[in-house]
């Protein structure tokens, strides 16, 4: 596993002018998220920000605020969830009640709300959530902790790996229309692709 980017000087946005207008618009909007939320309360946003930062191992505020705005938009939209397991609450309820539960557990186990905990304490809580082992007050015994964890991880990961800063770090060539890729055989790169620097 790598400890740092193989491509420290590559910026996928340098090529944005070569992309089609629609794609450029979609990607550029991620760089300037609107900080207003229509679903999340400020307390929920605070807790969620620390959860997604822990799940992605990244504290950079510009990325975290994009992830929050993605999740916020999704939770207030009428588009469906694609699939939901029988017996599991609707996505918006699962997350709203889940965030409150995580804060409750943080206060009872560490004496502070989740956002104020150390990285290690946050990891412990999320690890317990993942294994359905969070010590919750009895009315919440049946709360689908594992489902909540999976949902949060999915939302965090799919938005994190859609951010162009992250594309640049992992050396993703990114959008390629109308230009396409020309040199695709082993060892060949198109001139604008990321070049490894080790």
């Amino acid at each position: 596993m790598a400890e740092q980017s193989h491509y420290p000087h590559y910026d996928v946005m340098d090529e944005a002018e070569a992309w089609d207008d629609h794609t450029r618009d979609v990607v550029r909007k991620r760089l300037a998220p609107n900080g207003n939320f229509s679903f999340l309360t400020s307390q929920e946003a605070k807790t969620l920000a620390k959860i997604v930062a822990t799940l992605t191992d990244d504290e950079r505020s510009e990325i975290i605020s994009y992830i929050l705005s993605y999740i916020d938009q999704r939770l207030q939209s009428k588009i469906g969830e694609s699939e939901r397991k029988v017996g599991i609450p609707k996505e918006a309820d699962l997350i709203r009640n889940g965030l409150a539960l995580i804060d409750t557990v943080a206060k009872s186990s560490a004496g502070q709300e989740f956002a104020s905990l150390t990285l290690q304490e946050r990891q412990t809580i999320l690890g317990n959530l993942e294994r359905q082992q969070l010590p919750v007050p009895w009315p919440d015994k049946g709360f689908p902790q594992k489902e909540l964890f999976n949902k949060l991880l999915r939302l965090a990961v799919e938005s994190y790996y859609s951010h162009p800063l992250v594309w640049s770090e992992i050396g993703h060539g990114g959008p390629a229309y109308p230009r396409g890729y020309v040199r695709t055989e082993p060892g060949l790169l198109d001139p604008w692709e990321a070049k490894a620097e080790e």
Partner: peptide, 28 residues
């Protein structure tokens, strides 16, 4: 592409946090 790979591995291998980020630095 990055989303499908990260989402698939995060979900199946239960990889998150530092482990996921370091694995994805080797995306290519």
């Amino acid at each position: 592409r990055p989303v499908a790979m990260a989402r698939g591995i995060a979900n199946s291998a239960k990889l998150w946090g530092l482990g996921l980020r370091q694995m994805m630095l080797d995306f290519n």
